[in-house]
Amino acid sequence: MAVLEVNNIFKSFGKYEVLKGISFSLEEGEVLAMIGSSGSGKTTLLRCLNFLERPDKGTIAVNEKLLFDGESAEKMTEEQIRQNRLHFGLVFQNFNLFPQYSVIENISLAPKLLQIGTEEEIEQKALALIERVGLSDKKDYYPWQLSGGQQQRVAIARALALGPDVLCFDEPTSALDPELTGEVLKVIKDLKTENRTMVVVTHEMEFARNVADKIIFMANGVIEEMGPPEQIFEHPQSEKTKAFLSKSLEEI
């Protein structure tokens, strides 16, 4: 049974068509890596999944439940959109932690405001998540006191606190110094062993190859090629994929 089913998503900004019919599905525990050059629509797709953008057309279903249908999108209330967002988590490129809250407060803020469990339970869960991302000794630090890699790990814990069905990452290591990307990627890799369904937009080809179960290569708003990493990286079919891969490997 597919956890996530995305069907024929279209999205334009004015005259500029960013997504031109994106469809894919994801099984439970699968990790999907989305690669492609900037401007290909990866981030917009991720933002559509998290209802930060509203697709013009298409459907999104999670666990067989239709969350979004372009046909009836106009009628969606703010409350419905908010509820829908709870199925997804999103980790941003620039972390976007709340600066006035400590690590543990960042993680427990939303569960507390949404009253998911008792204060005690929320606190316990937050502490467990902090331990998972290896920041137990930093739980009372404020974001500015942490390195980028640490901040991103807090952001991951914050997204996990609400137990989303699908956890999305938007270039989670792009804003980090090279020596810090490893610690973040390791956390993401660990999450895979917990059977977490994830969508990762990334430029880290090695990571995509080693961790993802499925790769989507996007170009000009369409899925140019989709398949298991061996196929995409070893035997790419499309010329565009070949060109992109040889270029990004060249850089390394």
């Binding site: 209802f51 703010e78 967002r85 709870l86 941003f92 939303a110 405001l113 949404l114």
Partner: peptide
């Protein structure tokens, strides 16, 4: 992006303004 961080956590506009 501070608003968006609140949105993706399922917070309401009011909560985001007041708490974040």
């Amino acid at each position: 992006s501070q608003y968006e961080a609140g949105y993706v956590l399922g917070l309401t506009k009011k909560q985001i303004f007041r708490k974040i």
